[in-house]
Write a protein that binds this DNA or RNA. Structure first.
Lengths: 327, 327
DNA sequence: ACACATTATGGAACCGGTTCTATTTCAGTA
DNA sequence: TACTGAAATAGAACCGGTTCCATAATGTGT
């Protein structure tokens, strides 16, 4: 059935070690080389990556664990990871944990058994169980998006992003705010962004902030917004992600509030996918694609040099569009 | 370093074949079983999936080739594939061909060398080179989204979708149309949808359709729309995908055309992600998630039973929202 | 207690490659 | 022509498992 190195060797009348040498770069005489060449072409021989990896103890595969597939930020990061991985000759095994912690843990072990060379984890939260798994597998492991003590990570400047939005809002003269946040379990999104915002906003003595927790999904965020918007006196609404901000805008439209005339809206993310929406959303743009690139470069260093890099922080920028205006 | 079956066997004082039998389900006496049990737990032994697959000639991995990561439809399909694959104990290797034909071909071979059990291909186009690769690798291969002679596929009823939009537009009394299509190379999106639309629309003798080709990306579609919309007399615009329709809406807004008052807009897709946009887009909703489920079920049959299934067609439904109104 | 069927176990071969070592081949040099 | 060193090759061992086969240890019925 499948043609193996033995078949080639037999047909060429040489030892399989010679064929192996031919395949790699060892010394083979021009004559044998040519002979093997022909046979390999004729039979369409492709070495079995599995058998090869077994001996090499290296698969050239990088495992990526993502929390969900239907998120624009995840997709942009993934695109970045993918394009750089391809450049460098790594194959990606992407596993979707579907926002379930158990599956994340399970996936860490599965990827380890699969003998990936390293794992990149787009994290929501790092619990003690995560730490145990990461420790257990003894593999290069890189966390994206959440700062984690003792584990290499690449994070966004979420705190700074919060401050930027606050500053912008204050400059526009707003005094009362409605902040849709997410669970504090997600430190980056649920705490850092919020804290940055609050620390900056309270510099202005008379600012009032109402905050309410919702979820990452548009559906739930929309529902929360439908409940909260009617009673609010806030003139400026912040969504902890662009997706949430979008859900707020949808709700506003259904409630006959126009954005930004009646109410300003801002978010965090700056996804390409949403950049064509009307009206265009004021947001803090994160370098999602770039974080992917950096992730591959970093994990590669960990794999080949065994380096344990410091945690890296990426900056972001405020992008003022059409959903915010003077109060 | 990594603990192997030999280490366990030695420590337990048994042959490695016994440990192997213990791991699988062979007959092992209660006493040995318990002894091995302890040691496995203590040492945190995890069998090497690679070595296992080498003998078993089966990896429990399914390769998925996608054209791009930043597309809502791709992501919904992928979510469906992923959730079903997980249920059935398959691991996914997802490779992103980044819309390049060469990478698609390359990925087919790479996945084959990786010894995946089967490949699911989210296709844009199937060329002769694709066919050769698919033929070469001799693996269960399933095409999604494009009908292909002699290769098992699951496709959408794109022709029917086109007809549905046409019928809806006619019922609203529209006479003049602007259709943003894509390259004919993509048969499903570029031809079938369009043909369905045309066949239905021309039943009304006096309908006029202007069609123009653009690309799948929002950016390019937006630019095309900015060029085409100003001069048009059409009262109804169709985008070959929801993404294109969205770009059209963006352009309309920038040109001070209001939707649907000045112009109606419709698309194809019905992505969850866009369902919260304002105004909500009239579209044909495709069962993207379901196609993923079906894909795994089908490829599994191909893998375990060696069946070669017939091409399957999925139906879709018109969802009338806010972007279309009477003329 | 004895023949006979089961179950448990060890050893070896195998999966498809890579790599180490020993041997052969072939030049180049004295 | 004989000698030496480098290049080419064959053969065996190995990677970490599974599986087949033969043997050993149990258990059953009479």
């Amino acid at each position: 059935m499948m043609v193996t190195i033995n078949d080639i060797a037999k047909e060429a009348g040489v030892a399989k070690s010679t064929v192996s040498r031919y395949l790699n770069n060892g010394s083979v005489s021009p004559r044998t080389k040519q002979k093997i060449d022909e046979i390999v072409k004729k039979r369409g021989y492709k070495p079995n990556t599995f058998a090869r990896s077994l001996k090499a103890q290296k698969t050239n595969m990088i495992g990526v664990i993502i929390p969900r597939l239907d998120s624009p930020s995840t997709n942009e990061v993934l695109s970045g990871i993918d394009s750089r991985a391809h450049e460098k000759g790594y194959q990606l095994i992407i596993t979707n944990a579907n926002q379930e912690k158990e599956r994340e843990i399970e996936d860490i072990y599965t990827l380890a058994k699969q003998k990936v060379d390293g794992i990149i984890f787009l994290a929501k939260e790092i619990t003690a169980e995560h730490r145990k798994a990461i420790w257990d597998i003894e593999l290069p492991f890189l966390v994206l998006g959440q700062h984690t003590k003792d584990i290499p990570s690449i994070v966004h400047d979420d705190y700074g992003a919060g401050k930027k939005i606050a500053r912008h809002a204050l400059e526009l003269g707003h005094k009362e705010f409605l902040y849709f946040t997410v669970s504090k379990e997600d430190e980056a999104v649920g705490q850092d962004r919020y804290n940055g915002f609050m620390d900056e906003i309270t510099k202005e003595g008379d600012a009032v902030v109402h905050s309410i927790e919702t979820s990452f999904t548009m559906r739930e965020a929309h529902q929360t917004a439908m409940e909260e918007l009617p009673g609010t006196k806030a003139s400026f609404v912040i969504g902890a992600t662009d997706t949430i901000a979008l859900a707020v805008m949808k709700a506003a439209s259904e409630l006959d509030l126009s954005v930004p005339e009646d109410i300003s809206v801002a978010g965090y993310g700056g996804y390409d996918l949403f950049s064509f929406m009307t009206p265009a959303l004021t947001t803090v743009k994160y370098p999602y694609f770039g974080i992917g690139d950096m992730a591959i470069d970093t994990i590669e260093k960990m794999i080949v040099k065994g380096e344990v890099p410091e945690s890296q922080i990426l900056s972001n920028e405020l992008v003022i569009k059409e959903t915010t205006k003077k109060n």
